[in-house]
Design a protein around this nucleic acid. Sequence first.
DNA 1: TTTGGTGCAAACGATTTGCAATTCT
DNA 2: AGAATTGCAAATCGTTTGCACCAAA
Lengths: 153, 153
Amino acid sequence: MPSTDAELKKAGLKVTSPRIKILDILKKPEHQHVSAEDVYRILIEQEDEVGLATVYRVLNQFDDAGIVTRHHFEGGRSVFELSAKKHHDHLVCLTCGRVIEFEDEVIERRQLEVAQANQIELTNHSLYLYGECKNADNCEYNTEDANPGRFGV
Amino acid sequence: MPSTDAELKKAGLKVTSPRIKILDILKKPEHQHVSAEDVYRILIEQEDEVGLATVYRVLNQFDDAGIVTRHHFEGGRSVFELSAKKHHDHLVCLTCGRVIEFEDEVIERRQLEVAQANQIELTNHSLYLYGECKNADNCEYNTEDANPGRFGV
DNA sequence: TTTGGTGCAAACGATTTGCAATTCT
DNA sequence: AGAATTGCAAATCGTTTGCACCAAA
Protein backbone atom coordinates (compact mmCIF):
# COMPACT_ATOMS: atom_id res chain seq x y z
CA MET A 1 0.00 0.00 0.00
CA PRO A 2 1.40 3.36 -1.02
CA SER A 3 2.02 6.01 1.61
CA THR A 4 -0.39 8.86 1.98
CA ASP A 5 2.13 11.12 0.27
CA ALA A 6 2.54 8.80 -2.68
CA GLU A 7 -1.21 8.45 -3.10
CA LEU A 8 -1.64 12.19 -3.30
CA LYS A 9 1.14 12.56 -5.82
CA LYS A 10 -0.25 9.78 -7.93
CA ALA A 11 -3.57 11.60 -7.99
CA GLY A 12 -1.78 14.68 -9.29
CA LEU A 13 -2.42 16.56 -6.08
CA LYS A 14 0.22 18.58 -4.34
CA VAL A 15 1.17 17.06 -1.01
CA THR A 16 -0.10 19.54 1.54
CA SER A 17 -0.77 19.39 5.22
CA PRO A 18 -4.59 19.55 5.00
CA ARG A 19 -4.71 16.81 2.37
CA ILE A 20 -2.44 14.51 4.35
CA LYS A 21 -4.46 15.00 7.52
CA ILE A 22 -7.78 14.44 5.79
CA LEU A 23 -6.63 11.35 3.93
CA ASP A 24 -5.21 9.91 7.12
CA ILE A 25 -8.52 10.43 8.85
CA LEU A 26 -10.37 8.67 6.07
CA LYS A 27 -8.01 5.74 6.37
CA LYS A 28 -8.94 5.03 9.95
CA PRO A 29 -11.36 2.14 10.26
CA GLU A 30 -13.57 4.09 12.65
CA HIS A 31 -14.08 6.79 10.04
CA GLN A 32 -15.30 4.67 7.17
CA HIS A 33 -18.34 6.80 6.43
CA VAL A 34 -17.98 10.46 7.26
CA SER A 35 -19.53 13.71 6.10
CA ALA A 36 -17.52 16.85 5.41
CA GLU A 37 -18.66 18.26 8.72
CA ASP A 38 -17.55 15.05 10.43
CA VAL A 39 -14.07 15.41 8.99
CA TYR A 40 -13.97 19.05 10.00
CA ARG A 41 -15.02 18.21 13.55
CA ILE A 42 -12.42 15.45 13.81
CA LEU A 43 -9.70 17.82 12.61
CA ILE A 44 -10.64 20.34 15.25
CA GLU A 45 -10.74 17.69 17.94
CA GLN A 46 -7.19 16.71 17.09
CA GLU A 47 -6.15 20.35 17.21
CA ASP A 48 -5.54 20.67 13.50
CA GLU A 49 -6.53 23.99 12.04
CA VAL A 50 -8.13 23.41 8.65
CA GLY A 51 -10.89 25.51 7.20
CA LEU A 52 -14.25 23.94 6.48
CA ALA A 53 -14.07 25.16 2.89
CA THR A 54 -10.80 23.34 2.47
CA VAL A 55 -12.32 20.16 3.80
CA TYR A 56 -15.05 20.40 1.17
CA ARG A 57 -12.56 21.21 -1.55
CA VAL A 58 -10.23 18.38 -0.63
CA LEU A 59 -13.05 15.89 -0.37
CA ASN A 60 -14.27 16.90 -3.81
CA GLN A 61 -10.78 16.57 -5.22
CA PHE A 62 -10.45 13.13 -3.66
CA ASP A 63 -13.78 12.21 -5.20
CA ASP A 64 -12.66 13.44 -8.62
CA ALA A 65 -9.40 11.60 -8.25
CA GLY A 66 -11.24 8.46 -7.31
CA ILE A 67 -9.65 8.31 -3.87
CA VAL A 68 -13.01 8.49 -2.14
CA THR A 69 -16.56 7.71 -3.12
CA ARG A 70 -19.42 10.03 -2.34
CA HIS A 71 -22.67 8.60 -1.03
CA HIS A 72 -26.10 10.15 -0.69
CA PHE A 73 -27.69 8.57 2.35
CA GLU A 74 -31.18 9.55 3.38
CA GLY A 75 -31.08 12.92 5.02
CA GLY A 76 -29.45 15.06 2.41
CA ARG A 77 -25.80 15.42 3.29
CA SER A 78 -23.03 13.62 1.48
CA VAL A 79 -21.04 10.91 3.15
CA PHE A 80 -17.58 9.97 1.95
CA GLU A 81 -15.75 6.71 2.08
CA LEU A 82 -12.31 5.62 0.95
CA SER A 83 -12.84 4.08 -2.46
CA ALA A 84 -13.15 0.40 -1.92
CA LYS A 85 -10.95 -1.99 -3.73
CA LYS A 86 -14.09 -3.95 -4.24
CA HIS A 87 -17.63 -2.86 -5.01
CA HIS A 88 -20.16 -3.18 -2.23
CA ASP A 89 -23.52 -1.87 -1.09
CA HIS A 90 -24.67 -0.68 2.30
CA LEU A 91 -26.90 -1.93 5.06
CA VAL A 92 -27.63 0.85 7.54
CA CYS A 93 -29.06 0.45 11.02
CA LEU A 94 -31.43 3.35 11.55
CA THR A 95 -31.18 3.03 15.31
CA CYS A 96 -27.44 3.13 15.83
CA GLY A 97 -26.25 4.41 12.49
CA ARG A 98 -23.94 1.46 12.03
CA VAL A 99 -23.12 0.80 8.39
CA ILE A 100 -22.51 -2.74 7.21
CA GLU A 101 -20.99 -3.25 3.81
CA PHE A 102 -22.03 -6.20 1.72
CA GLU A 103 -21.82 -7.53 -1.77
CA ASP A 104 -24.24 -9.85 -3.42
CA GLU A 105 -23.50 -11.50 -6.73
CA VAL A 106 -27.10 -12.29 -7.42
CA ILE A 107 -28.25 -8.73 -6.92
CA GLU A 108 -25.39 -7.39 -9.04
CA ARG A 109 -26.23 -9.70 -11.88
CA ARG A 110 -29.94 -8.93 -11.79
CA GLN A 111 -29.24 -5.22 -11.90
CA LEU A 112 -27.34 -5.64 -15.13
CA GLU A 113 -30.17 -7.71 -16.54
CA VAL A 114 -32.78 -5.15 -15.60
CA ALA A 115 -30.79 -2.35 -17.22
CA GLN A 116 -30.19 -4.50 -20.27
CA ALA A 117 -33.88 -5.27 -20.60
CA ASN A 118 -34.55 -1.55 -20.63
CA GLN A 119 -31.91 -0.72 -23.17
CA ILE A 120 -29.85 1.20 -20.66
CA GLU A 121 -26.09 1.03 -20.40
CA LEU A 122 -25.52 0.86 -16.66
CA THR A 123 -22.88 3.28 -15.41
CA ASN A 124 -23.36 2.92 -11.68
CA HIS A 125 -25.93 2.25 -9.02
CA SER A 126 -26.66 2.73 -5.37
CA LEU A 127 -28.38 0.30 -3.09
CA TYR A 128 -29.04 1.05 0.54
CA LEU A 129 -30.91 -1.25 2.87
CA TYR A 130 -32.27 0.42 5.99
CA GLY A 131 -33.35 -1.45 9.09
CA GLU A 132 -32.81 -2.03 12.77
CA CYS A 133 -30.55 -4.39 14.65
CA LYS A 134 -32.62 -7.34 15.85
CA ASN A 135 -30.99 -7.68 19.26
CA ALA A 136 -30.29 -4.68 21.40
CA ASP A 137 -26.96 -6.36 22.12
CA ASN A 138 -25.86 -6.16 18.52
CA CYS A 139 -27.02 -2.63 18.23
CA GLU A 140 -24.30 -0.11 18.81
CA TYR A 141 -26.78 2.40 20.10
CA ASN A 142 -25.35 3.99 23.24
CA THR A 143 -21.87 3.13 22.12
CA GLU A 144 -19.33 5.86 21.60
CA ASP A 145 -19.62 5.04 17.93
CA ALA A 146 -23.34 5.53 17.90
CA ASN A 147 -24.69 8.42 15.94
CA PRO A 148 -28.43 8.17 16.51
CA GLY A 149 -30.69 10.16 14.33
CA ARG A 150 -28.07 10.65 11.73
CA PHE A 151 -29.85 8.42 9.27
CA GLY A 152 -33.24 8.82 10.82
CA VAL A 153 -36.21 8.33 8.53
CA MET B 1 -60.19 5.38 -6.57
CA PRO B 2 -61.17 8.05 -4.06
CA SER B 3 -61.50 11.64 -5.18
CA THR B 4 -58.75 14.08 -4.41
CA ASP B 5 -60.95 15.60 -1.72
CA ALA B 6 -61.62 12.27 -0.08
CA GLU B 7 -57.96 11.36 -0.09
CA LEU B 8 -57.04 14.54 1.70
CA LYS B 9 -59.72 14.06 4.31
CA LYS B 10 -58.67 10.49 4.87
CA ALA B 11 -55.15 11.71 5.50
CA GLY B 12 -56.51 14.07 8.14
CA LEU B 13 -55.68 17.10 6.07
CA LYS B 14 -58.02 19.98 5.61
CA VAL B 15 -59.21 20.24 2.03
CA THR B 16 -57.68 23.44 0.75
CA SER B 17 -57.09 24.83 -2.67
CA PRO B 18 -53.27 24.47 -2.68
CA ARG B 19 -53.46 20.87 -1.51
CA ILE B 20 -56.02 19.93 -4.15
CA LYS B 21 -54.02 21.56 -6.92
CA ILE B 22 -50.77 19.93 -5.85
CA LEU B 23 -52.27 16.49 -5.44
CA ASP B 24 -53.91 16.78 -8.84
CA ILE B 25 -50.58 17.65 -10.40
CA LEU B 26 -48.93 14.65 -8.78
CA LYS B 27 -51.63 12.43 -10.19
CA LYS B 28 -50.82 13.28 -13.77
CA PRO B 29 -48.78 10.59 -15.48
CA GLU B 30 -46.39 13.14 -16.91
CA HIS B 31 -45.52 14.33 -13.42
CA GLN B 32 -44.53 11.05 -11.86
CA HIS B 33 -41.25 12.29 -10.45
CA VAL B 34 -41.15 15.96 -9.58
CA SER B 35 -39.21 18.18 -7.22
CA ALA B 36 -40.80 20.87 -5.08
CA GLU B 37 -39.58 23.49 -7.53
CA ASP B 38 -41.08 21.51 -10.39
CA VAL B 39 -44.46 21.55 -8.72
CA TYR B 40 -44.14 25.24 -8.00
CA ARG B 41 -43.25 25.95 -11.62
CA ILE B 42 -46.17 23.90 -12.90
CA LEU B 43 -48.54 25.74 -10.60
CA ILE B 44 -47.35 29.07 -11.91
CA GLU B 45 -47.61 27.89 -15.51
CA GLN B 46 -51.24 27.03 -14.94
CA GLU B 47 -51.81 30.43 -13.37
CA ASP B 48 -52.32 29.12 -9.88
CA GLU B 49 -50.90 31.32 -7.17
CA VAL B 50 -49.35 29.13 -4.49
CA GLY B 51 -46.33 30.06 -2.44
CA LEU B 52 -43.18 27.99 -2.72
CA ALA B 53 -43.14 27.51 1.04
CA THR B 54 -46.61 26.04 0.85
CA VAL B 55 -45.52 23.64 -1.85
CA TYR B 56 -42.76 22.38 0.43
CA ARG B 57 -45.09 22.17 3.39
CA VAL B 58 -47.77 20.31 1.48
CA LEU B 59 -45.28 17.90 -0.04
CA ASN B 60 -43.94 17.13 3.42
CA GLN B 61 -47.41 16.60 4.76
CA PHE B 62 -48.18 14.28 1.88
CA ASP B 63 -44.99 12.40 2.63
CA ASP B 64 -45.90 12.10 6.31
CA ALA B 65 -49.38 10.97 5.37
CA GLY B 66 -47.95 8.40 3.02
CA ILE B 67 -49.57 9.99 0.00
CA VAL B 68 -46.23 10.56 -1.68
CA THR B 69 -42.80 9.03 -1.39
CA ARG B 70 -39.69 11.16 -1.24
CA HIS B 71 -36.64 10.12 -3.22
CA HIS B 72 -33.05 11.32 -2.99
CA PHE B 73 -31.64 11.01 -6.47
CA GLU B 74 -28.07 11.98 -7.10
CA GLY B 75 -27.80 15.72 -7.28
CA GLY B 76 -29.19 16.80 -3.94
CA ARG B 77 -32.77 17.83 -4.36
CA SER B 78 -35.71 15.68 -3.34
CA VAL B 79 -38.03 14.19 -5.91
CA PHE B 80 -41.55 13.20 -5.00
CA GLU B 81 -43.78 10.56 -6.45
CA LEU B 82 -47.31 9.46 -5.67
CA SER B 83 -46.96 6.51 -3.33
CA ALA B 84 -47.10 3.46 -5.51
CA LYS B 85 -49.64 0.83 -4.94
CA LYS B 86 -46.78 -1.50 -5.61
CA HIS B 87 -43.17 -1.33 -4.55
CA HIS B 88 -40.63 -0.63 -7.25
CA ASP B 89 -37.12 0.65 -7.76
CA HIS B 90 -35.74 3.15 -10.25
CA LEU B 91 -33.61 3.10 -13.34
CA VAL B 92 -32.49 6.61 -14.25
CA CYS B 93 -31.01 7.71 -17.55
CA LEU B 94 -28.32 10.24 -16.73
CA THR B 95 -28.48 11.72 -20.19
CA CYS B 96 -32.17 12.50 -20.52
CA GLY B 97 -33.33 12.22 -16.93
CA ARG B 98 -35.96 9.66 -17.84
CA VAL B 99 -36.98 7.45 -14.92
CA ILE B 100 -38.00 3.88 -15.50
CA GLU B 101 -39.67 2.01 -12.68
CA PHE B 102 -39.02 -1.66 -12.23
CA GLU B 103 -39.47 -4.43 -9.75
CA ASP B 104 -37.42 -7.53 -9.46
CA GLU B 105 -38.46 -10.44 -7.29
CA VAL B 106 -34.99 -11.87 -7.16
CA ILE B 107 -33.42 -8.65 -5.97
CA GLU B 108 -36.14 -8.14 -3.39
CA ARG B 109 -35.65 -11.61 -1.98
CA ARG B 110 -31.89 -11.31 -1.82
CA GLN B 111 -32.16 -8.03 0.03
CA LEU B 112 -34.18 -9.69 2.76
CA GLU B 113 -31.65 -12.49 2.95
CA VAL B 114 -28.73 -10.10 3.23
CA ALA B 115 -30.44 -8.19 6.04
CA GLN B 116 -31.37 -11.43 7.75
CA ALA B 117 -27.80 -12.68 7.56
CA ASN B 118 -26.71 -9.50 9.30
CA GLN B 119 -29.29 -9.66 12.02
CA ILE B 120 -31.05 -6.58 10.76
CA GLU B 121 -34.80 -6.16 10.55
CA LEU B 122 -35.28 -4.48 7.19
CA THR B 123 -37.60 -1.49 7.28
CA ASN B 124 -37.02 -0.09 3.81
CA HIS B 125 -34.48 0.26 1.08
CA SER B 126 -33.60 2.31 -1.93
CA LEU B 127 -32.11 1.06 -5.14
CA TYR B 128 -31.25 3.33 -8.02
CA LEU B 129 -29.60 2.20 -11.19
CA TYR B 130 -27.96 4.95 -13.22
CA GLY B 131 -27.03 4.63 -16.86
CA GLU B 132 -27.52 5.93 -20.35
CA CYS B 133 -29.97 5.02 -23.07
CA LYS B 134 -28.21 2.75 -25.55
CA ASN B 135 -29.78 4.22 -28.68
CA ALA B 136 -30.04 7.94 -29.13
CA ASP B 137 -33.50 7.21 -30.47
CA ASN B 138 -34.72 5.82 -27.20
CA CYS B 139 -33.17 8.65 -25.31
CA GLU B 140 -35.60 11.41 -24.58
CA TYR B 141 -32.81 13.94 -24.60
CA ASN B 142 -33.93 16.92 -26.64
CA THR B 143 -37.52 16.03 -26.05
CA GLU B 144 -39.80 18.45 -24.29
CA ASP B 145 -39.72 16.04 -21.39
CA ALA B 146 -35.99 16.09 -21.24
CA ASN B 147 -34.40 17.64 -18.23
CA PRO B 148 -30.72 17.26 -18.99
CA GLY B 149 -28.27 17.72 -16.23
CA ARG B 150 -30.88 17.25 -13.62
CA PHE B 151 -29.40 13.97 -12.52
CA GLY B 152 -25.98 14.68 -13.88
CA VAL B 153 -23.07 12.90 -12.25
C1' DT C 1 9.57 31.92 -8.80
C1' DT C 2 5.67 30.03 -10.29
C1' DT C 3 1.67 27.40 -9.74
C1' DG C 4 -1.35 25.68 -6.93
C1' DG C 5 -3.44 25.62 -2.15
C1' DT C 6 -5.55 27.75 1.92
C1' DG C 7 -8.50 30.60 5.02
C1' DC C 8 -12.19 33.59 5.52
C1' DA C 9 -16.23 35.56 4.50
C1' DA C 10 -19.73 36.22 1.31
C1' DA C 11 -22.68 33.76 -1.98
C1' DC C 12 -25.66 29.85 -3.05
C1' DG C 13 -29.48 26.64 -3.81
C1' DA C 14 -32.69 23.88 -1.51
C1' DT C 15 -35.67 23.71 2.26
C1' DT C 16 -37.66 25.38 6.69
C1' DT C 17 -39.79 28.60 9.89
C1' DG C 18 -41.93 32.86 12.38
C1' DC C 19 -45.79 35.43 12.15
C1' DA C 20 -49.71 37.99 10.79
C1' DA C 21 -53.49 37.48 7.58
C1' DT C 22 -56.77 34.13 5.66
C1' DT C 23 -59.61 30.00 4.95
C1' DC C 24 -61.91 25.62 6.13
C1' DT C 25 -65.25 23.18 9.37
C1' DA D 1 -65.72 31.21 16.25
C1' DG D 2 -61.65 28.41 16.40
C1' DA D 3 -58.23 25.72 14.59
C1' DA D 4 -55.66 24.84 10.68
C1' DT D 5 -53.47 26.85 6.54
C1' DT D 6 -51.24 30.23 3.68
C1' DG D 7 -47.93 33.77 1.99
C1' DC D 8 -44.01 36.30 2.56
C1' DA D 9 -39.75 37.22 4.14
C1' DA D 10 -36.15 36.00 7.01
C1' DA D 11 -33.58 32.13 8.70
C1' DT D 12 -31.10 27.52 8.14
C1' DC D 13 -28.28 24.00 6.30
C1' DG D 14 -25.01 21.97 3.52
C1' DT D 15 -21.91 23.30 0.10
C1' DT D 16 -19.41 26.40 -3.17
C1' DT D 17 -16.72 30.57 -4.53
C1' DG D 18 -14.06 35.07 -4.84
C1' DC D 19 -10.08 36.84 -3.35
C1' DA D 20 -5.87 38.11 -0.92
C1' DC D 21 -2.32 35.50 1.25
C1' DC D 22 0.81 31.37 1.75
C1' DA D 23 3.36 27.15 0.55
C1' DA D 24 5.02 23.13 -2.37
C1' DA D 25 7.76 22.09 -6.52
